Simulated scan of single mutants.
Amino acid sequence: MRLFAWIIGLPLAVAVTVFAVANRAEIRFDLWPLPFGIDLPAYLAVLVPLGLGLVAGFLLGWASGLKARLRAGSLRRRLDAAEKTQSQA
């Protein structure tokens, strides 16, 4: 599994680095109701929302499985207690 992470992660890191180097031009974001804007590199305008979306997706996926993980833990504790009672009898 660790080799798979390297096979996927290293080319992805290289691609992100190349993208960032190639898109260093400044772009201006006007924050509409506010009287000012922000100048930032184009790569940040793409990579920051992408990263925030990945984190949000991870958290939503983790939260959706929380109920199942809690139930599995409860069932595991019940099974361990039943096995302990069985071995004492």
Rank of each mutant, 00 (worst) to 15 (best):
Q88M: 06
W32L: 13
Q86N: 09
P33A: 09
D30H: 11
L75K: 00
R71P: 00
A72S: 04
A68D: 02
A72L: 02
I8Y: 12
A5W: 10
T17M: 08
P11R: 03
D39E: 14
K67V: 07
F19C: 02
F58D: 14
L47H: 03
V55I: 15
A63F: 10
D30W: 11
V55F: 13
F36I: 15
S87H: 04
K67C: 00
R69N: 05
V18T: 14
R78A: 10
F58G: 15
P49S: 06
G37H: 11
A82F: 04
L10Q: 09
P41A: 14
I8H: 04
R69I: 02
L60V: 12
S87G: 04
F36W: 14
I7A: 15
Q88L: 08
A13Y: 05
L40P: 01
A68V: 05
D30E: 13
L50E: 06
R2Y: 09
A56Q: 10
F19G: 01
F29S: 15
P35N: 14
A82Y: 02
G73L: 01
L12D: 08
V14Y: 09
V18Q: 04
R2S: 12
V18N: 04
G61I: 02
A45S: 15
L52A: 12
V14D: 03
G73W: 00
P49C: 06
D80T: 06
E83M: 07
L3M: 14
A72H: 00
L52F: 12
A82M: 07
L66Y: 08
R77V: 08
W62P: 01
F19M: 01
L10A: 13
A42L: 15
A81I: 03
A42E: 13
A89Q: 09
A89D: 09
R24E: 14
R78P: 01
A82R: 11
R71K: 02
V14Q: 02
V55P: 03
A20K: 00
R2G: 15
R28Q: 15
A82E: 13
A15Y: 04
L59N: 11
R76E: 02
R76S: 03
L10E: 10
Q88H: 04
R76Y: 00
A72M: 00
A45L: 10
L66T: 05
A63D: 10
G57M: 09
G37Q: 13
N23I: 05
M1C: 13
G9M: 06
V55W: 13
K67N: 03
Q88N: 06
L54A: 12
F36Y: 15
R77I: 06
G9E: 06
W6T: 09
L75S: 00
G61Y: 07
R28I: 13
L12N: 08
A81W: 00
L66S: 07
G51A: 10
A56Y: 10
L66V: 04
V55N: 11
G51K: 01
T85I: 05
S87C: 03
A15G: 03
Q86W: 05
F58R: 14
A22W: 10
M1F: 11
G51P: 01
L31M: 15
G73T: 02
A5I: 13
Y43R: 01
L60Q: 11
Q86I: 08
L60W: 10
V16Q: 01
D39K: 13
P35Q: 12
W62V: 11
F29K: 11
G61T: 09
S64K: 09
M1H: 14
D30M: 13
G57D: 09
V18S: 05
E83T: 05
L50K: 08
V21T: 12
R78S: 09
L66N: 03
L40D: 02
A42V: 11
L50H: 07
